[in-house]
Simulated scan of single mutants.
Amino acid sequence: MADGVRFGVLGPVVAEGDGGPLDLKGPRHRAVLARLLVARRRVVPVARLVADLWPEPPAGAVGALQTFVAALRRALEPDRPPRAPARLLVTEGPGYALRTEPDTVDARRFETAVTDAARLPPGQALDRLEQALDWWRGPAYAEFADEDWTRAERARLAALRLNAEEQRAATRLRLGRAAEAVPDLEAHVTAQPGREEAWRLLALALYRTG
């Protein structure tokens, strides 16, 4: 059922139903799904999808796109009766949209969790941040890292992840758990040496651990 489909973009793009991972077919099928997920429920015109999928679109590009969409619909809504309208991957106006709910996409759950953590007491906030950071399986939209259409969203999510890592470190310090913060902060500043807040937190954690 479409209601049970969950999507992961914090790493390679995946989709899971109640019975486990869904077969997303070939790389262009996955690219269509990823492109619609990047759009965050907005309609992506057919012409835009074709341009994003093919640097030099072939003569039958629109027909091929329709084939990919039909296959994705079967994968996402296997119980949908014949001729019944799709409820998840929908045709609207000049293109297609993926009508996901916020809690069915890991990136959107991550954003919500990090926002919620800022309003929670430190102990609960740390648990929430740990859970949210564990959802990352690699760089966002990993297999589409070279595509122009993922660039802005990948950068936005990467920045949110870095902020969440620093928020977790700051929360550990508030809880008096400086020793736990040091290893992650050392790895953090090694990977991101320009992060001034991370250096500040590391200096504070090292000071408190003596």
Rank of each mutant, 00 (worst) to 15 (best):
M1V: 14
M1A: 15
G4M: 12
F7Y: 15
P12L: 07
P12Y: 02
E16R: 15
P21L: 10
L22F: 09
D23I: 03
G26N: 13
R28Y: 12
A34R: 09
R35P: 08
R35M: 11
R41C: 13
R48W: 04
R48D: 06
L49M: 14
A51H: 08
W54S: 11
W54G: 11
P57S: 10
V62F: 08
T67E: 14
A70L: 13
L72Y: 11
A84C: 07
T91L: 09
G93T: 07
T100V: 15
E101C: 02
D103A: 15
T104I: 00
V105A: 09
A107D: 13
A107V: 06
A107Q: 06
R108D: 14
R109W: 06
E111V: 15
E111D: 14
V114A: 07
T115F: 01
A117H: 04
P122F: 08
D134N: 09
W136D: 08
R137S: 10
Y141M: 03
E147G: 00
A155S: 14
L157M: 06
L160K: 09
A164I: 01
A170F: 02
T171S: 05
P183F: 00
A187L: 14
A187S: 08
V189Y: 03
T190R: 12
Q192R: 07
G194W: 08
A198S: 03
